[in-house]
Amino acid sequence: MTKITPNRLYYVYDPMCSWCWGYKPVWDKIQQALRDKIDIQFLVGGLAPDSDVAMPQEMQQQIAAYWKKIENYLGTPFNYDFWIQNVPRRSTYPACRAVLAARQQGAELAMLESIQRAYYLEARNPSDSDVLIELAQQAGLNQQQFVVDYGSAEIDQMLKQEIAFARSIGGNSFPSLFVETAHGIVELQVDYQSAQNTIGQIEQLIDE
Rank of each mutant, 00 (worst) to 15 (best):
A110H: 04
A118L: 01
Y80E: 00
D39G: 11
Q143D: 01
L132D: 12
I70Q: 09
A136E: 05
A48H: 14
Q104I: 02
Q85I: 02
C96P: 04
M55S: 07
Q145R: 15
Q41W: 06
Q57E: 15
Q57M: 06
N72S: 15
I70K: 07
A107W: 01
D130L: 11
R117V: 13
N79L: 03
I40H: 11
L43I: 10
F42Y: 14
C96M: 06
L74G: 03
L121V: 00
A102D: 03
Q104W: 03
Y119P: 00
G46S: 13
R97Y: 10
A95F: 05
S129G: 14
A65S: 04
L34P: 08
R103L: 12
Q145C: 00
G46I: 09
A101L: 12
Y120H: 01
V147S: 10
L47H: 12
Q57T: 14
Q41N: 08
F82C: 02
G140Y: 08
V53N: 13
A101C: 09
S51A: 14
A123D: 07
P88V: 10
A139D: 06
I40T: 11
Q145S: 14
S114C: 05
P56Q: 09
K68V: 10
D52E: 15
W83P: 00
V53P: 00
Y80K: 02
S51Q: 14
N86P: 02
I70D: 05
A102I: 06
N125C: 06
L43E: 09
L141A: 03
A101G: 12
D128P: 00
Y120T: 08
R90T: 14
E113I: 01
P88E: 08
W83M: 02
Y80S: 03
I38K: 04
I40R: 07
N125D: 15
E134L: 09
A123V: 06
Y66R: 10
W83E: 00
A33C: 09
L47W: 07
R117K: 13
N86F: 03
Q138F: 02
A48G: 12
Q41G: 05
P77R: 00
K69F: 08
P56H: 10
S114T: 05
L121W: 01
S129R: 13
L112T: 10
K37Q: 15
R117P: 00
P77A: 06
W67V: 04
V87N: 05
E108Y: 14
A54E: 15
E71T: 01
R89M: 08
E122M: 13
G75S: 07
E71K: 13
L34D: 08
Q85P: 01
E134C: 03
Y93Q: 10
E108R: 12
